[in-house]
Simulated assay, not measured.
Amino acid sequence: MRRIKVKQVDAFTTVPFGGNPAAVVLDAEGLTEEEMQRIAREMNLSETAFVASSERADFRVRFFTPVKEIDLAGHPTIATFHALVEEGLIAPRDGLVTVTQELNVGVLPVEIEIEAGVAKRVIMTQQKPLFASAYAAVSWAKALGIDKADILEGYPLQTVSTGTPQLMIPVKSLTTLRLLRPDFEAMAALTEQGDFFSVHVFTLETFSEEADVHARHFAPTAGVREDPVTGSASGGMAAYLVRYGLVDKSSLVAEQGHLIGRPGLVYIDLEKEGDEITTVKVGGSAVTVMDGELFF
């Protein structure tokens, strides 16, 4: 019987039971892909992260939803590197520490702000944004249970990827977000026909004065009806907002999870060369809520 260490970490929050929970398997060496998928199904969270050694980076990290692998994921990255510092697998020296993770999309840096030996914020670098296909508003309005008039006029429903392709849907208000009634079968069918992994719906109305945007996220084909706080999509969303002139700044704060009882904050920084967005960084805090072992 094998025993592996597992932590459950709430990402994009500083308090337990907020933000987005991720399971982190700290010693995934030797696990098969099938075993990783079965463990992720057992954990039954949006994602489970598996950490192993790498010849190309400081760590090899893979992410699995309950039903499939995802190449790049935000909140489990925040959770993973919080856990690695907590376990002493990253030297807890105070200041800004930079390490690298090997993902399915390549090697990317992760910065960790450490204070008194504790990871106060983890900042992941995502890929340069790729803007892909656009979609008809009427089909998605129906699938989300809203009127087409509730979608922000003059802006595309478009796939944006900073490592994971996600469909961006801007809507007019928090009221619209609150009243979403997703038809998950219809959403899954549309997703299967598209070039994206999941769907990110957002508005410039926020609960907090600190925030610039509020979002909800759905991934029905990945076994995740609603994701509480989504780091990968927050990076793509920020790139979308800047590209289409909906915000005029390079540092943004995104709210998510408030409407389902798991509020979280995501901090996004963009770097540009001329009009082109070249770098996307997504950061947040995390807190461990469970530490134990899995037997199988």
Rank of each mutant, 00 (worst) to 15 (best):
R243A: 08
E115P: 09
G163C: 14
K249S: 05
K120H: 14
I151W: 03
F218Q: 01
F64S: 08
E210L: 05
T164W: 10
D195E: 09
A286M: 12
M124N: 12
A28N: 05
V253A: 01
V9Q: 06
I4D: 04
A215F: 02
L130Q: 08
L265T: 08
L177K: 01
E55Q: 14
N104M: 15
E87R: 14
K148N: 08
G74I: 05
R56M: 13
G30K: 01
F296C: 08
F196C: 04
N104I: 11
D195T: 06
N44H: 05
L152E: 03
A52K: 10
F202W: 05
V242N: 04
T125Q: 06
K120F: 12
G18I: 02
S234H: 09
E271V: 05
V242G: 03
T162K: 10
T279S: 02
R41K: 15
G231H: 03
H75F: 13
E55I: 14
G231A: 06
P220A: 00
S173C: 14
Q37R: 04
I112P: 03
S208C: 10
V138E: 05
P76Y: 07
T159V: 12
L167A: 13
T13Y: 02
D94F: 12
W140Y: 15
T164K: 11
H214K: 01
A23N: 03
G19Y: 06
D10H: 12
E271C: 10
S173V: 12
G19E: 02
G274R: 11
Q8N: 11
I268S: 04
K172D: 10
A211N: 00
Q37H: 03
P228K: 02
E115V: 15
M290F: 01
A83W: 13
F59R: 02
P156L: 11
L174S: 14
Q193D: 09
T32K: 10
P220E: 00
I39E: 04
L72R: 09
L84E: 11
P156R: 08
T162N: 14
A116Q: 11
I78H: 07
V107S: 11
V61K: 07
R243F: 06
N104P: 12
A239M: 02
G283R: 00
P220L: 03
G231E: 04
D94K: 10
T230R: 01
G30M: 04
M168V: 13
P165S: 07
G283Q: 00
Q256S: 07
A149H: 13
A49F: 05
M124Q: 12
M36K: 05
K7D: 07
T164L: 14
Q126D: 07
G231R: 00
E271I: 07
V25W: 07
V201W: 00
L174M: 10
M36I: 04
D212Y: 02
A116M: 12
A132M: 05
S139G: 06
Q193F: 06
P182G: 11
D275T: 04
T221W: 02
V253I: 09
Q158I: 15
E113S: 12
M124I: 13
A239H: 00
V229Y: 08
Q166C: 10
A79H: 09
G236T: 03
E86Y: 11
V171L: 13
I277A: 13
T279N: 00
K5A: 11
V199C: 00
V280K: 05
I277M: 13
Y244M: 05
P220G: 02
A134E: 13
R216G: 06
M43C: 03
D248L: 06
T176I: 11
A57D: 14
A83P: 14
